[in-house]
Design a protein around this nucleic acid. Structure first.
Length: 225
DNA sequence: AACTCGGGGCA
DNA sequence: TGCCCAGAGTT
């Protein structure tokens, strides 16, 4: 039983570090979150598909004029790929995205009565919608709790020891268990913001990191310099 | 598990 | 000018 007690103490200590990290991130990045406001779930889906491997700026620049011309699944489903490609050319990967968006619109028309589905399983049937995009739609459009794990969330949470870094789905469940539901939205923004500004993929700026004293990966990056 | 799509941002 | 990137699909 002594072993069990000791084990519990170690787990508690680790959890304390995780909570400290999350608290510092919260203080550091408060007010930096940007709301995802689109008038319909379908528009959010289109914008989220467009944002893959692309700077948000590129998407924000075109969505207003794009949705002024086309808004509904019905309207997108009748587009020719070349028409949509022209509209979204500045977002990168545009041929795939155009094809997927049109196909998704058709599927919503044909199989979902023109309404975008509200379960992850059904959302992931839509071309161009993977687990991350499905979770973005669930949480932002329908208020259904779902932690969207993109590459930033995946990398940063793994480096900080908040997750195992096995794969995005595992990270999703680990963060879901670690962070209180009412803070998922904030935590998501902190991790992404931190990943963009400080904990970047190559040569992370550990000296500027507000949690570098608590981070299990800090030493390794400092030594690598 | 590796490859592909791709223009824009940034060193 | 070259390298990298807020994913998802295919093989």
């Amino acid at each position: 039983m002594k072993k069990t007690t000791q084990h519990n103490k170690i787990i508690t200590g680790l959890d304390k570090v995780k909570q400290d990290i999350l608290e510092i991130l919260e203080e550091t990045y408060q007010g930096t979150s940007t709301a995802l406001n689109f008038s319909t779930p379908f528009e959010l889906m289109v914008a989220t598909i467009l944002s893959a491997q692309t700077n948000d700026n590129q998407v924000n620049k075109i969505t207003e004029s794009l949705f002024k011309k086309y808004r509904t699944p019905q309207q997108f489903s009748t587009l020719q790929p070349e028409e949509l490609e022209q509209e979204i050319k500045t977002c990168g990967l545009y041929k795939n995205k155009a094809k997927n968006i049109i196909a998704a619109a058709k599927l919503i028309q044909d199989q979902f009565d023109g309404q975008i589905p509200q379960t992850r399983e059904e959302l992931m049937l839509l071309p161009g919608v993977g687990r991350k995009t499905a979770n973005v739609i669930l949480s932002n459009a329908f208020g259904i709790p779902a932690f969207a794990v993109d590459t930033h969330v995946f990398r940063v949470s793994a480096r900080l020891g908040l997750s195992s870094g096995t794969n995005p789905a595992v990270t999703e469940s680990e963060l879901t268990a670690l962070i209180p539901e009412e803070k998922w939205g904030d935590a998501h923004h902190w991790l992404i913001w931190h990943g963009r500004k400080i904990c970047i993929a190559r040569k992370p700026k550990c000296s500027l990191c507000p949690v570098n004293q608590l981070c299990p990966s800090n030493q390794e990056y400092e030594e690598a310099k």
